[in-house]
Amino acid sequence: MSHDHTKVQEFFTARAADWDTRFPDDGPAYRAAIAELALRPGSSVLDAGCGTGRALPALREAVGPSGMVLGADLTPAMLEAATRAGRHHDGHLLLADVARLPLRTQTLDAVFGAGLISHLSNPEDNLRELRRVVRPGGLLALFHPIGRAALAARQGRQITPDDLRAEANLGPLLAGSGWLMTSYVDEDERFLAMATREG
């Protein structure tokens, strides 16, 4: 495991136990973002970097009992918290790195990634791996329940021009990974970039 991975694991292991109590009001924002994926009953979807699985109930509602919901995360403590919260009933939890997913090529209809983009060790490669597991025309939603400016203010920092989530940076990054960005919203109460898998 690389040094980056160890750092990401340490960061989230330390926060896993009280993660949900720190952000209790995100449910509606998650549901609204997932609604934009327009998943149909029977669809298959991956929550990449699922953490404690906060998106899994809404993803399950969207795809119904016949659909497939997967939640992949690198940090065992996060998946344990997801199980304690009962979210393993909504989706199949995988201890896996988004850089090397244990999934067959072109098997998914969509990928949902909440707060994912800032934690990718190699964004272009990682986004290409997400593309690999999605069928042509499938969707990617990169979500955060708070916009870039509001998040920076909360963390006592400024947004910098090299922020990967800036529209001018994210569009080309996605394009270089085989995704076409179709919409981009960065408001105080949410960040949501949607993309379609090309080819």
Rank of each mutant, 00 (worst) to 15 (best):
H89M: 14
T75A: 13
L59I: 12
A81D: 12
E61R: 03
R84H: 15
H89D: 15
A96C: 02
E80A: 15
R100N: 11
E61W: 13
R87M: 04
T83F: 12
H92S: 04
A62D: 10
M78Q: 05
A77T: 07
A99H: 15
G51T: 09
L59S: 14
L94A: 09
A81V: 14
P76L: 04
L94M: 14
D73C: 10
R87P: 09
G86K: 00
L59W: 04
H92P: 01
L74Q: 06
S66A: 09
G49K: 08
D73T: 05
G71V: 06
V63Q: 01
A58M: 12
H89G: 11
A99C: 06
A96M: 04
L94V: 08
A62T: 13
D97N: 02
T52F: 11
M68I: 08
A99Q: 10
H92I: 03
A99Y: 08
C50D: 07
D97Q: 02
S66C: 05
L59P: 00
L74Y: 00
L79T: 13
A58W: 13
G64D: 09
G49V: 00
H88S: 02
L93K: 10
V69P: 01
L95I: 04
R60D: 09
G71E: 04
L56H: 05
D73L: 15
R100W: 14
T75E: 03
G53P: 13
H88A: 02
G49T: 08
A77H: 11
E61K: 07
R100I: 12
L56Q: 10
A72S: 07
G91C: 10
A62W: 11
